[in-house]
Amino acid sequence: MNLDFAQLVPSIPYILYGIWVTLQFVAVSLVLGFLWGTVLALFKIGRVTILRWFADAYTSVFRGTPLILQMLIIYYAVPQLTGMDIGAFSAGVLTFALNSAAYISEIIRAGINAVDKGQKEAAVALGVPYRTMMLKIILPQAMKNILPALMNEFITLTKESAIVSVIGALDIMRRAQIVGASNYRFFEPLLLAGLIYYLLVMLLTMAGRVMERRLAKSD
């Protein structure tokens, strides 16, 4: 064994700063992905055939191809096509938002469909209009099904975000690699990066549990 963490110490703040970059990246991707995913989910449960078809095809393509491929296409191929230069961070966020929207739209669609159909009937029988019914009766109940799965998506995204290091965004992973390369010692910085990711995921898991418990108060 020849581990030497002493050499790593000066670089720790540099790697830790990556947490901020990663979190920023994940948060922006998730918010955009959630908004776009909600729209796609509404397309899927709606009555307009062409929109339903589009949302299904979209989901199929984004779930059926590697994430890293999607990212490389957006980072390298889009500028080639449009002449517009896109930064690593923006390319990453765009890819992750587009990709997670596909998964999130399925989560939301399933969450809405899982609400007992008696709820809709009761609301309809009381004369409640569609919009009000969706907003105040169906979606609040669907959120209970959606949030745990959404939290999982959040966690997956946090881990998967490490692939933005491939296009050079300075996240935790990339910083660990840079430190490794400059010290000629990779094991220690990568171990630290792994620890950071693990702690982040544990933190998110706990936050998810707290949220679920809050939602369960009417059970």
Partner: peptide
Amino acid sequence: GMVFQHFNLFPH
């Protein structure tokens, strides 16, 4: 007004 077999109260 309608009353259902399975009540269909709004649980939330």
